[in-house]
Amino acid sequence: MPRPELLYGISFIGLRSGHALDTEAHRGSCVSAASQLLKVHAVCPLSRRKIPLLLSDSLPYVEDTDVYVGVPCVSPLDADIAEKSNRPVPGGGTGAGHSELAEAGAGGFPTSAKLRDWLISRQRYWGTPIPIIHCPSCGPVPVPEDQLPVQLPDLSHFPKRGISPLEEAHEWVKCSCPRCGVAGRRETDTMDTFVDSSWYFLRFLDARSTQHAVNPRLQDALMPVDLYVGGKEHGGWQGWCSSLTL
C-alpha cells in the first residue's frame, strides 16, 4: 500500500481474476455483474477490522499489479464502488501516524509491486547459469566447485518464446549426478545478467587477475568507495570510476 497511513479508511480490497485467492473454494456471492465477494477476508493491522475482498477485473489497477486498495474517504471512485457494493465506509482515513504504524508492523515497502522474481523471470540464453543438477534420486544437487563455472552451450537456434532457451540444448542438459552418478538434468533456468551488478565493478580493480575474482589486496586498499553514481540496476563500475583516483 503506497500510503499506509490510510489503513484506517480501507473499505475493500480488490483482486484481479487469476490472483492466488481466486479459487472456487474461496469464491462467494456476486456483488455486482463485475465483481464477486470472496469468502476470505483481510484484517486491518491497526484496528483488526475485517476487510472484504472483491474479485473484479474492472477496478483501476496500477499497471502490473493484481491488488487494489479501496479507500473511500480519499477517493470518490472508491466511495462509489463501496456504495454500489454495499460495503461499509469507515472513517478516520488519515488517523495513523508513523509511530502507530511502526508499532503495528505496518507500512513500508518490503517488496516491489511491479518486480516479480526479476532475476529469474527474464530468461536469457546468455544469463548466468544456475549451478544445480536435478537428480531423480538425490533431488537438487549443487555442481561441484571444481566443475565451476558452468559453461553455456553453443546454440544454433532459439526456441519459441515462453521457455528457457536451454531447454532444447538436450546434450548440454544431460549429465550425471555428482553425488550418486545416475543420469540427471542441468538446471535450465538462468539468472538475468543483473545478478552481476552488485559485484562486477570490483573486477575493475584488477581485471587481468586469474587467481581471484576480486583482488583482495586492492579491495582492502581501495574499497569501499565514498560516492556511488549510477542507476539502481546499472552504474556499479561508473560509480567506482567516478569516485576513485589512482
Rank of each mutant, 00 (worst) to 15 (best):
G184K: 02
H234R: 11
V74M: 11
N215L: 00
E167F: 07
T23D: 04
G235I: 01
Q147W: 09
P45N: 09
V214G: 03
A221V: 03
I81F: 15
G14W: 00
M223R: 00
E24C: 02
S197E: 15
H157L: 08
L115T: 13
F12N: 00
S112Q: 09
I13T: 00
K160C: 11
H19P: 09
E167Y: 08
C44V: 04
P72N: 06
H170F: 05
P159Y: 04
Y61M: 05
P159R: 06
R3Y: 13
Q238A: 13
L115M: 14
E63S: 15
S156M: 10
F158W: 07
I130K: 04
T23Q: 05
D220Q: 11
A34D: 15
Y8I: 01
R208C: 14
S99N: 12
K160S: 13
R208F: 11
Q123I: 06
G14E: 01
E83D: 11
E233L: 14
K174I: 04
A33L: 10
S112M: 03
R49I: 05
D192F: 07
G105D: 10
H234N: 15
P165H: 00
P159T: 02
I163F: 10
D117I: 13
S56I: 01
D220N: 10
V71D: 02
P140L: 01
K50R: 15
D206P: 11
C180A: 06
I13F: 00
G70D: 06
S198D: 03
S56Q: 08
W126E: 15
A213D: 13
N86H: 14
G91W: 10
E83Y: 07
L53F: 06
G105L: 03
K174N: 06
E187I: 00
S209Q: 09
E167C: 12
D196H: 15
S198H: 07
D57E: 12
V40T: 12
P129M: 02
S58V: 05
C135V: 05
R16W: 01
S112R: 08
H234Q: 14
C138V: 06
R186M: 04
D78W: 01
P4G: 01
N215C: 04
P142F: 02
T94R: 13
W240T: 00
D220H: 11
S176P: 00
L38D: 07
G97C: 05
A104Y: 03
F204N: 08
T193H: 15
Q238I: 10
L37C: 07
S243H: 02
T94A: 07
S56C: 14
G95H: 00
S35W: 01
T188N: 08
D226Q: 13
P2Q: 04
V195A: 15
C175Q: 03
W172Q: 07
R122C: 12
Y200S: 09
E171C: 02
K232Q: 14
K114W: 08
A25T: 00
V62M: 11
G107M: 03
L227F: 12
P76C: 04
L148K: 14
G181A: 06
Y200W: 03
S137F: 14
P76T: 05
I133L: 05
A96S: 12
L21P: 07
S243R: 02
A213H: 13
R116A: 13
G181D: 06
G181I: 08
A106R: 08
C135G: 09
L15E: 01
Y61S: 06
Q151R: 15
F12W: 02
G18T: 02
G18D: 02
R179Q: 14
Y228N: 12
K174H: 06
